[in-house]
């Protein structure tokens, strides 16, 4: 509540740009709230269907291998580290660190997507096989779509970084991108745990 009060007071015309709350960053936070609710909806559907089924997964489903997704979890987590490194870099005005960091993070994101494609192609069941298949594919699929969006976001940040648009004082877009990327990594950890480990 005191934040509200303060924001109101700080928003005078003469407040310095650095101290003014950044609308883009706050917008990203609210957007992430809505994204969380979308995934929450999918998770609730998953658990609802699971609770209704006598056997989950259905008996004729081939067993899941955790090799690729475990590898992929590593890829995504390392990618967030690079993103964090890039973000810290630009906070200190280090534009090169931002460029390298987002570049590497984006490449790792692409690797994640490629491995996910192999994983999904090799599951041995389909979205229409059963309610299990439907819920499984929805969680995996919508996460992949979001990660693709996140990679596009990072490429845009990278391009803007390369033409020197960011500095220690101008980096809200970088922060928003990083925030979304951490969010997607967090969602992945839950997806991974629910789909592959939860008994």
């Amino acid at each position: 509540m005191s934040a509200w009060t303060k924001v109101g007071a700080a928003r005078s015309a003469d407040a310095s740009p650095a101290r003014r709350p950044n609308v883009g960053l706050i917008g990203a936070v609210f957007f992430i709230v809505s994204e969380s609710m979308f995934f929450l909806g999918l998770f609730l559907a998953y658990f609802y269907l699971r609770a209704l089924s006598k056997t989950w997964p259905p008996p004729d489903t081939p067993p899941l291998s955790t090799v690729l997704p475990t590898l992929n979890t590593g890829v995504l987590l390392i990618s967030t580290l690079f993103m964090a490194w890039a973000e810290r870099g630009i906070a200190r005005g280090d534009a090169r660190r931002l460029q390298i960091g987002t570049g590497v993070a984006a490449v790792l994101g692409l690797i994640f997507l490629t491995i996910q494609a192999f994983e999904i192609a090799d599951l041995g069941f389909a979205p229409h096989s059963s309610a299990y298949g439907s819920a499984f594919f929805f969680l995996m699929g919508f996460h992949v779509v979001r990660v693709f969006g996140g990679v596009v976001f990072m490429v845009i940040i990278l391009a803007r970084a390369l033409i020197g648009q960011f500095s220690a004082r101008r980096r809200a877009a970088v922060q928003a991108c990083a925030l979304y990327w951490y969010f997607l990594a967090g969602v992945w950890l839950v997806v991974f745990w629910v789909l592959y480990w939860l008994k």
Binding site: W4, T5, V7, G8, A9, V23, S34
Partner: peptide
């Protein structure tokens, strides 16, 4: 998203909660 951010960041000076 738009309304929340607007109400959060763009209120006139002195417009406390």
């Amino acid at each position: 998203v738009n309304f929340l951010v607007t109400a959060y960041t763009m209120r006139a000076q002195g417009m406390t909660i």
